[in-house]
Nucleic acid binder design. Structure first.
Length: 164
DNA sequence: CAACTGATTGTTCCT
DNA sequence: AGGAACAATCAGTTG
């Protein structure tokens, strides 16, 4: 009884499409892009429709960073609860309850992830440079040129939380 | 067996 | 400039 949605696959239609973004229920999308886990190649049936295994995933927002930690704690207090929605709701509620100061550390981490994501995108672009589907490989943000392979950020972990 | 679902908000991407 | 889609999670459920 739960999954009889049928409907389109997971397109934006699921998002209720039009309609103020007030009603949460973003709907459901995504999902059709795993293909790994159990068997690397597994059935290897989608060789043609292969997606971008190298495509970097979007950087987790401050909320997600907070959720990652929140989830861990939530499980400790609710080891029986296995509903992802439960943590989501609880986390969302708490998140709104937090002040900017509390979110600051999470935002900072999220910001770092974003920077990393940009780098990953560049590397990904280089890989895709061969696969120019569109007529013009010179897309828009493709111009973002970066040193080929020189600047190797050794480790820029700048976490300064001393006094407390 | 594998893909999809729920639920949260934020960020990123495309039009 | 705004809307649409996806980011983690995890077990359950459907095809």
């Amino acid at each position: 009884m739960k999954g009889e949605k049928g409907k389109g696959v997971v397109r934006r239609e699921t998002r209720e499409a039009l309609k103020p973004v007030d009603d949460r229920k973003v709907g459901k999308r995504k999902a059709a892009l795993k293909a790994d886990k159990s068997s690397k190649k597994g059935t290897k049936k989608d060789q043609k429709a292969k997606k971008d295994p190298n495509k970097p995933k979007r950087p987790a927002s401050a909320f997600f960073v907070f959720l990652e930690e929140f989830r861990k704690i939530y499980k400790q207090e609710h080891p029986n609860v296995k509903a992802v929605s439960a943590v989501g709701k609880a986390g969302g509620e708490k998140w709104k309850s937090m002040s900017d100061a509390e979110k600051a550390p999470y935002e900072a981490k999220a910001a770092k992830r974003k920077t990393d994501y940009e780098k990953q995108m560049v590397a990904y672009n280089k890989k895709q440079e061969s696969t120019a589907d569109d007529d013009d490989e010179e897309s828009d943000r493709s111009k973002s040129e970066v040193n080929d392979e020189d600047e190797e950020e050794s480790g820029e972990e700048e976490e300064d939380e001393d006094d407390d």
